[in-house]
Each structure stands twice: as structure tokens, then as C-alpha cells.
Design a protein around this nucleic acid. Structure first.
Length: 307
DNA sequence: CTCTAGATTTCGTACCTTAA
DNA sequence: TTAAGGTACGAAATCTAGAG
């Protein structure tokens, strides 16, 4: 294919080339494209001029492609297929797809809503597998931007640049302490909250630690932070075996009650609710697989697809 | 079967209209 | 102003039917 286009070519001319190449008949190709025969003839002239080749020769049994046209046909067909694919992007078929999705989430989210999500995925898409990632900060942002991590879920601190998100639900905090705590009688008081040592999880990718540290250290409260740990899930057992107090997501408190026998208390002062969201990078906003997964998570909480 | 004249088909061009 | 498409028409090749 040594010849070069003499000037910019209207891409519709490639459709014309393809139609004429297939039909070997200008009038029939014109019917396919909705053009009159003279319009086809004129368009073919433009294409001939652009390529500097006759492309098709009029012969007794129709238009016969030149060797150059034969050479051109495969790349033109491929180019048209690529263009058509951009207009009709691939569809994700959950029942038959094989794909691994990587979800960035805290240990809290793994405990609280990953089981339900995993069950939904297993029912609808048996070939799809999930794995979680504990990346945080810039590493998480970079991983989401390059597609290594597909979706981040939870009450997360994310660098906002290029991020999109759906709020899945709003949740509240609860306090937990050991069942036979010597200083707590019936209900948790403001004095208990101020004087008892608190356990908080600071190593997690969630934004809970920031919120709780601010509350505990605020001028009117000044509660002591006795222990900082890396994971929320460690807190239940620690609280069960010490006189420490902890403020954790309410759903997690319920889990700790069953697992470690701790007791859940209403916070003695108003704590702000927090939002749990799913976030993804704008580069993958139209990824059909990711769109399906996001929709599944959204329906899990709202009973309907996102608008 | 062969030849021939008219009909039909198909491509190319001139000229006009339209829309950007 | 320019490019693209339509109508009208010419040219060339093929098809078809009738005559010899």
C-alpha cells in the first residue's frame, strides 16, 4: 500500500468503498447507503482522487477492484469495525463473563456489606470473582486511575481528582464497652465518655479515625485516646478485655456484641452521621462491567438502579 | 444456430439546489 | 463560498426476441 491519501478523506467514503467492494455494483451499493447512483459515482470519483487509484474498473460483469483496492479492503473493513464498536460499545453479560473486580474497602466494609455483595455477584455472575485491596492515599488513587483497583467502597478518604461516587447509605456511630464495665451503670454518660480511655482504629483506609479524633479532642470533650490500632476488627476483643470505650459504626457494634459479648451504648452526645459511598475513577465511568457492579451495589441498598 | 435491432442496465458528467 | 447530493442525460455494455 504505497499510495497515500492526497488530502483529508470523509470517512463516509470508506463506507462507500466497502459497499462497492462487496456488491461490485455502484447502483446496488448506493441502495445500501441510501444514495443515488450519480451521487455514488461522484463519491467514488472523490475516493479515486484521494487514493490516486481507479479502485474499481468497469468490466462486462460489473466493477472489478484493482489490486490496490484488494489490498485496501482488509484495513478498511478493520477500521470501520473499530469505528462501529466505538458507537456500539461492548455489553457486559453477567451470566457468561469471566472477570476479576478489585474493591478497595476497609475491614469494616468487608465485614458489613461484602458478604451480601459477594452473594449477589455469585448468583448473577458465576464467572466473576471479587478481591479486596487495602491500598490507601495516593497509592489507592493511582491504582484506581490505572484500573488496578476498580471500585472503592465505604466511608473513605479519597483524593477527589477524577473521582465519581454514589452515596449508598447514611449510617451512625455507636459506643461499645465491656458488658460488666465497673464505671458504666445502665447507660453511657457524658462523664463516662470524657473520662474513659478510647480505642480508635487509625490504620484503616476509612475516614472514621479523622472524624473521631476531632470529636474526642474537641474543647468541650477532651476525651483521652488510650489506644490506637490498625484495624477496626481488633477493637471488639480489646474492648471486651479492657475498661476502654470505643466509638464504631453501629453495624459493626452489633457484630461485636455477638462475637465478643460487648455491650452497645447510645453515644451520650450527638455524633454526626456519615455517608458510605462507592467511588470509581472517571476513566472507567463507561466500563460496562464496572457499571454493572456499581448498579448491583446500588440496588442492594436502594432496590433500584442508579438514575 | 447465428445475426441484428431495440430494450435495459449501469456508470459518468453537466448543471442545479441546498446547507454549512 | 464550497462541498455534497439530486435530476437529466449521454455512452457503453449486456440482454432479449425475432428473422433467416
Amino acid at each position: 500500500m504505497a499510495k497515500r491519501l492526497s488530502h483529508q478523506v470523509d470517512l463516509n467514503l470508506l463506507e462507500l468503498f466497502q459497499a462497492v467492494y462487496q456488491t461490485r455494483n455502484l447502483t446496488a451499493a448506493g441502495r445500501e447507503l441510501g444514495l443515488s447512483q450519480p451521487a455514488m459515482s461522484r463519491a467514488l470519483t472523490r475516493l479515486r482522487h484521494a487514493y490516486g487509484d481507479d479502485l474499481f474498473l468497469r468490466q462486462p460483469h460489473g466493477l472489478v477492484p484493482t489490486p490496490f483496492a484488494d489490498e485496501l479492503s482488509a484495513p478498511v473493513r478493520q477500521a470501520l469495525n473499530i469505528v462501529r464498536q466505538t458507537l456500539h460499545p461492548p455489553v457486559f453479560h453477567p451470566a457468561t463473563e469471566n472477570r476479576v473486580f478489585t474493591l478497595a474497602m476497609s475491614d469494616v466494609s468487608e465485614q458489613v456489606f461484602l458478604p451480601t455483595l459477594a452473594d449477589l455477584v455469585a448468583r448473577q455472575a458465576p464467572g466473576v470473582r471479587l478481591q479486596t485491596s487495602q491500598l490507601q492515599g495516593k497509592a489507592l488513587h493511582d491504582a484506581m486511575a490505572d484500573g488496578t483497583v476498580d471500585l472503592a467502597m465505604g466511608h473513605l478518604r479519597l483524593h477527589p481528582e477524577g473521582m465519581c461516587s454514589d452515596v449508598l447509605f447514611t449510617a451512625r456511630y455507636a459506643c461499645i464497652a465491656r458488658r460488666d464495665h465497673p464505671a458504666i451503670h445502665g447507660r453511657l454518660t457524658v462523664d463516662n465518655f470524657r473520662s474513659l480511655g478510647h480505642v480508635i482504629a487509625t490504620g484503616s483506609i476509612t475516614g472514621h479515625a479523622q472524624v473521631l479524633e476531632r470529636i474526642l479532642s474537641s474543647p468541650g470533650i477532651g476525651a483521652p485516646i488510650a489506644l490506637r490500632v490498625g484495624h477496626f476488627l481488633s477493637i471488639g476483643r480489646i474492648v471486651a478485655q479492657t475498661d476502654y470505650l470505643a466509638t464504631v459504626p453501629r453495624t459493626l457494634a452489633a457484630t461485636f456484641e455477638h462475637a465478643w459479648g460487648v455491650r452497645t451504648y447510645e453515644p451520650p452526645l450527638p455524633l454526626p452521621p456519615y455517608e458510605v459511598a462507592q467511588s470509581w475513577h472517571e476513566r472507567y465511568a463507561r466500563d460496562p462491567g464496572l457499571t454493572w457492579l456499581r448498579s448491583l451495589a446500588y440496588q442492594r441498598f436502594f432496590g433500584r438502579p442508579p438514575t
